[in-house]
Structures are given as C-alpha cells and as structure tokens.
Amino acid sequence: MVQILIYSFVMGTQVLLLALALFLVYSVSKVQNFALGAIGAGIAYALYFSISAHLQIVWTILLTIGVSVVLGIINFLLNERLTRKQEHLFALLTSFSFAIVLESLISIVFGTDGKNIIPGILPVYEFGVFQIPIPGLITICFGVMIAVLLFFFVHFTPWGRMLRAIAENSFSAESSGVDSKKVRFLVYIVGSFIAGAIGILAGLNTALTPTMGFQLIIMAFIAFLVGGVSDIRGTVIASYLVVLIPETIIGSLEGVSLNWKMVLVFAVASILLGLRPNGLFVRESRKS
C-alpha cells in the first residue's frame, strides 16, 4: 500500500507540474492549451535522439533547450492571435491540432514502440522495505523546487505581478502599460520548459511513447478542471487525487491491469465534477 502511495506521489507530482503549466498559460490567455503534453513528449524525444546519437553533453543540452524554445514559440504564435481576439475555443482546437501534429511527427520519425531515454535498468533508492526509482526521486525534488520557484516568481517578482494583473484583467493591465504579449510569450516558453522537464521525467520513469504527452495532458487537464481553473489549491489536491484513487483501486483489486487506469481516472473525475462542477474549493458565484 505504501509503495502505491509512493508511486502515486511521483505520478501526482508529474500531473501537478503539468497542471501548473496549464494554470499559468490559462491565467494569461484563458486558453486551455492541449499542446503542452505533446511539447513535453517532443522535448523528451529530442533528448533521446541526442543520447542515442552519442552527442556531447553540451550539444545535448543545447538541442533540448533549443527544441523547448522553438516549440514554445510555435505554440505561442499559433495561439496569440486567437487569444487577442478572445476566440478561446478556437485556440483550444488549434492547440489540440498542434498536439496531433507533434505526435504524428514523433510517430513517423521515431516509430510507435516504447523507447528508453537511458538504456538499462535505472538505480533504485531503497529506504527500509520501500523503494523509489531515482527518476521518481528526481521528480519529487524537481516538483517541490519548481512549485517553490513558481510561487516566488508569481508573488514576489515584477513579472509575476504583471502575470497576475493580466490574469485578473488583461485590458486594465495593458492600459497600465503592461505588455501582455511579452508576458504571454514568457509564460509559453516557461510552460514549454516545464512540459519538457515532465516529458523527460515521465520518459525516465516509464518509457517514451508518442502518445505519452496526450495521456499526461489529459490527466493534467482533469486535475486542473476538477481542482478549479482559478484555484491553485484545488489543482494541487486534485492532481494527487486523480492519480491516487485509481492506483489504490488497481492495487487493491486482483486481476485489474494498469490499462484500466485511464478509465478509472475518468470515472473519478466524472464523479468529482458532477458533485463540484466549478472545482473542489470554488463556490459558484452569482453571474451578474
């Protein structure tokens, strides 16, 4: 049971980080960006390519960062005009199509079979009778670090204040001299980096597949929506709930394979959204 908890905590942290990236992008653009998952997968595949081509460490890092920046820029350019015109559903469609483009390209170039970023069995950290793989440990440490950094960035820096101002009211923020386009550009690049880190960590924890980004982003979206699009607390709790409950069910019942996870995640989300459609901690306010 504790092993299930540890695994759920690792997976939940991945979902949380991607949900945080979604939260950031949604805050500044009001667009639910589907492409972040596929961008994460693309960056992970770029790292896989560098390692399998035996590139030097410097070139590996440069290529990975370069791919992150390029994909972030493309994502921004595809959505910016639609964001400014407040055509949010169309921007959602565009980001979804971009995600399919990336997945298809990955499938064509690398194939659909699972790939390991680092070949061989990765070391496992043992504490007592419990085990946690090194990538899982890195995920948790990275997750805590990113969460703290993001909190500091959003609440204690000028850029963070601009981000919050745009999230509240982009027109007022622009009239006060805030360049919302620059802030959105920065957020898209940061979101791309976070997604890339999650893609790499997910690839290290399990295996690289072209559709891993889509599955991750759907879980992140479910956590984001179940938690409430305007409430970060709900997103944090929902990220772990949507992973923990299905994992606990699968671990408790015999003969239930991991393939049922997505079905259970969907079922849990349906129940939670049916009970709290606006989010776990968000109360419905009067729409005047």
Binding site: Q32, F34, H88, L89, L92, F96, F214, Q215, I218, F221, I222, L225, V229, S257, N259, W260, K261, M262, V263, V265, F266, A267, A269, S270, L273, G274, P277, N278
Partner: peptide, 28 residues
C-alpha cells in the same frame, strides 16, 4: 447531462478525455 452541469471549456476537455478513456476501456 454533463453539458448542463459544466462550463463550455470544461465540457470540451471532458468529452475529449472520454475519447481517451473509452479507447483505454476497449484496449483493456
């Protein structure tokens, strides 16, 4: 029923998630 309950953005994402979930069900 979900449409009546959820906002439009949430409904869109949820229906897309249903495609993935049903695909997982068929494979499992």
């Amino acid at each position: 029923l979900l449409y009546r309950r959820l906002s439009s953005d949430t409904f869109v994402v949820f229906t897309l998630a249903s495609v993935l979930a049903f695909d997982a069900l068929l494979r499992s």
